[in-house]
Design a binder for these strands. Structure first.
Lengths: 108, 108
DNA sequence: GGTTGATATCAACGAGTATCGATGTAATGC
DNA sequence: GCATTACATCGATACTCGTTGATATCAACC
């Protein structure tokens, strides 16, 4: 059993999927350093504005980034504990030393 | 700057992609507890044998699991530091408190 | 009010990929 | 040798999803 209540596998997989796209990952990593608005991210990534906006939408829907409108601009930042579940899961996985063989060969 | 040399974004994204499929994630999480062979994973997940085998192939190619053939069976286990890069990246992301706004609005 | 610029939405296209049935391979047991 | 079992590979299909151009929205500025 994991230390805490683990989210359903599908939900956790969806979290990892957020970081599985190079562009989205680049956006998230950039937002680690500073808040940025869409135009900055377009410049930074070299992707089209619609593409960046599309990924920002996904990240917003997932709750890992938040956008604050300020005039024509929208400043994006990472939400505080958006990656807690992933971090916990990975910590568990990463600490595996040498798993035992508990089961007999298949009953099938 | 990150603490160590960060792998290229695309490579890191590919790592996360490994955990972005519910079935693959389920397999990895199961292997955290104990070594298992394909048939066990088929029973555990309820997926078809070919599907499980397909995902094990991907995990093997990526180097995050290793299979040891033993007679008709193949025991799979997680490799030791397969998730180190992801763990480091997530730790960096997770520790973000409140990123500043360093840039002026766009030069556009 | 009209124009400009930042951003979001939509529809369509294309590439990647998960699933699955059929098949191949290799090891065990009779 | 032959049947059975565990596992892998292959080809086809279906579906997800990233990208993009067109378009809409909304604020700032003249």
């Amino acid at each position: 059993m994991p230390s805490a209540v683990r989210p359903p596998t599908a939900e956790l997989a969806a979290q990892f999927a957020l970081l599985s796209d190079p562009l989205r990952l680049q956006i998230v990593l950039a937002l680690t350093e500073e808040q940025l608005c869409t135009c900055h991210l377009v410049d930074l990534t070299g992707a089209k504005q619609t593409t960046v906006s599309h990924h920002l939408r996904q990240l917003r829907d997932a709750g890992v980034v938040a956008g604050e409108a300020e005039g024509r601009f929208t400043w994006y930042r990472l939400t505080s504990d958006a990656f807690a579940a992933m971090l916990e899961a990975l910590t568990g996985i990463g600490s595996v030393e040498d798993a035992p063989r508990l089961r007999p060969t298949c009953v099938g």
